[in-house]
Structures are given as C-alpha cells and as structure tokens.
Nucleic acid binder design. Structure first.
Ligand SMILES: [Zn+2]
Ligand SMILES: [Zn+2]
Ligand SMILES: [Zn+2]
Ligand SMILES: [Zn+2]
Lengths: 173, 173
DNA sequence: TTGCGAAGTGTTATAATAGTACATTTCGCA
DNA sequence: TGCGAAATGTACTATTATAACACTTCGCAA
C-alpha cells in the first residue's frame, strides 16, 4: 500500500498468492478512482483485471482477444483506449521494450518506476527508480537537457530463473 | 575518439560542423570494421552515412525511402538487415521510444549509452551512462535480478530548444 | 583457379502494432 | 427530462517488423 520496497519488488518473481495481491491492487486502484473521480468503466476495469490476473506484460492484441471473448468490442481501439486510460492515470504501465502493458502494482503511490524484465519467464517487476532518475537528472543537467520523463527498462534473469531453478522460456532478448 | 564527455554529448544539441563530425565518426567506424573484420558493404555503409548525415533518429522506412531512391533494394528487409548489422556491431543504436535508429557517435568505445531525446527538435544525444547503469545494477541486486541490458531513454527539452531560443517542433511526446 | 559453403542481397508476402474517423450509446448533471 | 461531454463500437488505414525463398557475391581451401 505504500512505496515499493526491494522485497516488495522481488516478490513479483516469487510464487505468491497472486489472487490476493491482485485483489489488493485492484482495491487500491478502485480507491484511487473514487478519490479522483476517474471512471473505471467495465472495459477499463476488465482490462486492469486481465493485466493483474496475468501479472506480466501483455500486448494490446492479447488483451483485445480476451475482451472479444467476453463480449466487449473487438476492434483495436477498444483495447488501446482502455490501456491509454489506465496508463494515463497510472494504473498500468507501458513497457516499450516489449510493446506491451502491465498493471501497476503500486497504484496508490505517485511514481515513475524502472522495470526488470526476465528474459526467461517474461515476468516483469516494477521498482522505484529514484536513484536512477536522480542520476539521469544529473547527467541531463551536465549537458543542459531538461528531462521530462525517463524510460528505464532492464532485461535479464529473475531470481526464479537463475541457474539452479529452471522455469520455462518465453521472451526473446 | 575516446569516451564521451558531457561537453561532447552537449555538442549534439549545438550547431556544429556536422560534415566534419560525421566524417570523423565514419572513419572511426571504418577503423572498427577493419580491425574486427566486419564487412561494411555498400548498403550498410550507406545506411550509416544516412544516419550520420541526419544526426537524428530515423525510422527504418525513412532509411528505406532513401535507399530505394539511390538504387538499392526497396523492400523493408533491406533496411532492417543493414540496421540490425549496425546495431549488433555497435555502429548504431536502436531507440525504442521512437521506433527508430541513430548512428552511434562513439563507435570506437564499447558502451551502453543513455539517450536524451528532445521533444521539440527531435535531436538525440547519446551519453555515457555508467552511473545510471551502476544504480540499475544495484537496484537489480537488491531483488536478485541479474541485468543483461538496460534501456535508458530520456524525453525532454534540449538546450537549443529551451525558452529563449525557439526551434521547430517535430516529435510527439 | 576453381569451385564450395557461408554470408549478403533482393523480392514477395504477411505479421504485429498502432491510430483515424465517425456513428451510436451512456453518463453526469442542470 | 434533456443537454453536452465522455465513452464505446466499428470500419478502415497506417506504421513497424519478420518469414521465406531465390539469387548473387565473397572468402577460402583444395
Ligand atoms: Zn502477484
Ligand atoms: Zn506502477
Ligand atoms: Zn554532428
Ligand atoms: Zn554509441
């Protein structure tokens, strides 16, 4: 419910009661929506739920497939609009490296996170990136560049996929 | 010719004798190719030249347009293959935020840079990102994540486009 | 020097991702 | 109740990227 801690973030890579954590995030999102007067309509809510259920990054067309299976509209804008809404209000994040989207796991904190993407199992963890952003800010300052937003996305191997354990491959480098 | 310095990087945003700097980079690239036995074939060389001439990020299809105008193949793979080669060998970089490519301005140093992209004029500067990468590494370590590559791309306003001067807008946020 | 295998090039075709435009419905609110 | 704004659904299009295959060129070794 508060700012993401390292152990928090690491949890993303571990087996956990996901329906529980997804439920908690959903509640936080609903809280935000109520507090800020956001309209968490059926499509939007369902898209967020789908992202939470998967707990990984999904492409817009993956989302769209599910939406149409559930009787929502079946054209790309249906998915893109819901995703745009969620991203715009910080309930989801866009992961450019993967051309995909993931639910925000800390929707109640105002943040600009870094992402850790496991190349083996495709899990994505979201982590506070304040030191990173400060370093970027400093580097920008040195060349007179004013930073508005920084994208920080790391590809690598998550703890669950390190030599020793051996999950299933899914994502290209 | 050596590691990029802040003033080096800042130069990207300033008016400069670009044919000179492009020539120097081209020579460095040729040196690398010779030293490492890379085959800098006509298409590949021309793509690199085009990127250097523009000194900004270009989409694969922008490149392709020029290639066909110059009598090279006119199908996407022609551009993508040349770009893949250049990226793979560190002579160009892919900028995911823009779905575009830019010539590497320091092909003689082994590096994994950060990018500063001006939202007004679309200029792109490439900067050493060691502190950033160290911070990322540390953040990864804290959650047991082994980083392979990190993408760092900042969007903002370059010195030339700051209130005071007023260049032309080109790139969306 | 010849000729073989690997690398590079060109082409067709198609996949995957993203956005425009516009009609219709729903919602918040006066 | 009804108006204007927001949201939804659809058709259509644009943009970015890859697969598959034929042909050529290159490096190199017999
Ligand atoms: Zn979970
Ligand atoms: Zn988040
Ligand atoms: Zn230059
Ligand atoms: Zn570079």
């Amino acid at each position: 419910m508060t700012a993401p801690t390292p152990s928090d973030t690491a949890a993303a890579f571990e087996r956990h009661d996901h329906s529980h954590c997804a439920g908690a995030v959903m509640q936080a999102a609903e809280g935000r929506a109520r507090a800020e007067g956001l309209r968490l309509t059926p499509v939007r809510r369902r898209v967020l739920e789908i992202l939470l259920e998967e707990h990984r990054a999904l492409g817009a067309y993956d989302i769209l497939d599910r939406l149409k299976a559930e009787g929502f509209g079946h054209q790309p804008p249906v998915a893109y609009r819901a995703l745009d809404f969620l991203v715009e209000h910080g309930l989801a994040h866009r992961i450019r490296r993967l051309n995909a989207f993931a639910a925000c796991m800390h929707p109640d904190t105002d943040h600009a996170p870094a992402f850790f993407i496991c190349a083996q199992c495709s899990a994505v963890a979201e982590s506070a990136a304040t030191p990173l952003r400060d370093a970027a800010q400093a580097a920008g300052l040195a060349i007179g560049f004013t930073i508005e937003r920084v994208t920080i996305e790391a590809i690598g191997t998550c703890p669950a996929c390190h030599p020793g354990t051996a999950p299933s491959p899914q994502v290209p480098s």
